[in-house]
Simulated scan of single mutants.
Amino acid sequence: MLVTRRMGYSFLFHTLTSLIEWLDMKDSTCPLMLRRLAVDCTINRLWIKRNARLHNITSTTPPILFKGIDRLIRNAISARRGRRKFRNLMRLCKWLNRF
């Protein structure tokens, strides 16, 4: 929820279908590339934390999990900042600058 709220949205995804519909919709709140990147990074980080909980019996708090997602998104944008679709994402993404 924190990821979507920081992107300017005020809803949750209760199904995979609603998440996919959100990725397909066109709006001016947040660029499509940033939404795709946020979903990819969130799924990646949740999968890593899930495996850590199952195999290492470690737990992570939501703020720490969000910081990991935030860092992953920043790194992905920075690594691709020369590409046309990524060039302005760091500046456009208000919620990345809050941390």
Rank of each mutant, 00 (worst) to 15 (best):
W95I: 02
R6N: 05
K67F: 12
W22R: 00
P63C: 08
I48V: 15
L19P: 05
L96I: 14
M25K: 09
P31S: 07
R81C: 15
R5A: 13
L37M: 13
F11C: 01
I64V: 07
K49R: 06
T60G: 04
I43S: 06
I20S: 10
L12E: 05
F86K: 00
R98P: 13
S28Y: 09
L92M: 14
N88M: 13
K49I: 15
I69N: 00
R35H: 02
L34C: 11
N44F: 15
F86E: 00
L34P: 13
N56D: 14
L34W: 01
S28C: 07
M90V: 05
I43Q: 05
L19Y: 00
M33Q: 11
A76H: 10
A52K: 08
G68L: 10
S78L: 15
G82R: 03
K26N: 04
L32D: 03
G68A: 07
A76F: 04
L19D: 00
R36Y: 10
R5V: 14
L34T: 05
I77R: 03
G82S: 07
W95A: 09
R84M: 09
R80L: 15
R6A: 06
F99H: 09
S10I: 09
R81G: 06
M25N: 02
D24K: 10
W47S: 14
K67E: 11
R91E: 13
L46T: 02
T4I: 13
S28A: 12
L54Y: 06
A52T: 04
S18M: 06
T29W: 04
L12I: 07
T61W: 04
T61Q: 08
L54A: 11
R83S: 11
S10W: 02
H14L: 04
R50C: 14
I69H: 03
K85E: 14
M33Y: 01
D24Y: 10
R5I: 10
N88E: 07
I77A: 08
L72K: 09
L72S: 10
M7R: 01
T29R: 05
K67N: 08
A76S: 12
R35S: 03
R5D: 11
A76G: 04
R91M: 13
W95N: 03
I77Q: 01
D70Y: 09
A38S: 15
N97K: 15
N56Q: 10
L96M: 10
F86S: 06
H55A: 04
I64M: 09
V3R: 01
Y9K: 01
K67H: 06
M1L: 07
W22L: 00
T58W: 06
P31H: 04
L65N: 01
S78N: 10
N97C: 14
L46E: 05
I20D: 12
S10A: 12
T29N: 02
R6V: 02
